[in-house]
């Protein structure tokens, strides 16, 4: 007796009718341009400290979804970073490029590299010498927050300047 199981159901291929929607691109509110020469508040960090750079100058700029252009808010902050770096010439910098989780790992590594490099090029254009600035991309590997919403994604799409 011969047998064969052919009870096959034709696969209903799942086609996605993707319609076009514009992704919200939130940009972090601009921080005010720091005044380097102003004396720090009595209780605040010393102006030459890394803490001052991170908190008063601001060491993080953010990007739009799948973007790496330096917007007005980021420009203002990076000008502050450049001014600080020129004042404290012994300091060097590593710019980390980061992404939100809405992309593939490998593409995001490339995008993070682009973002880190965009920050570096801006600082160079502002007069910081190229050999003081290194870049590293973390893609989507090192988020600052983990909620799956635009408020968090917009924080994770960032260039973080780490002073050494």
């Amino acid at each position: 007796m011969k047998l064969r199981f052919l009870t096959a159901v034709v696969v209903a291929a799942v086609f996605l009718a993707a319609c076009s929607t514009k992704k919200e691109e939130t940009v972090k509110a601009a921080a005010s341009t720091p005044t380097i020469s102003a004396p720090a508040p009595a209780s605040g960090p010393a102006p030459d400290s890394i803490e001052y750079f991170n908190t008063v100058v601001g060491n993080v700029v953010t990007f739009g979804y799948d973007k790496y252009d330096i917007d007005a808010a980021a420009q203002s902050k990076l000008k502050g970073q450049a001014a600080w770096l020129k004042q404290y010439a012994a300091r060097t910098l590593t710019v980390e490029g980061h992404c939100d989780e809405r992309g593939t790992r490998e593409y995001n590594l490339g995008l993070g590299e682009r973002r880190a490099n965009a920050v570096k090029q801006f600082l160079i254009a502002e007069g910081v010498s190229a050999n003081r600035v290194k870049t590293i991309s973390y893609g989507k590997e090192r988020p600052t927050c983990v909620s799956s919403d635009e408020a968090c994604y917009s924080k994770n799409r960032r260039g973080a300047s780490l002073v050494q």
């Binding site: 996605l16 009718a17 993707a18 076009s20 929607t21």
Partner: peptide, 8 residues
């Protein structure tokens, strides 16, 4: 694709 899908 049929919309603004990204492929990787």
């Amino acid at each position: 694709g049929t919309g603004k899908g990204r492929y990787g």
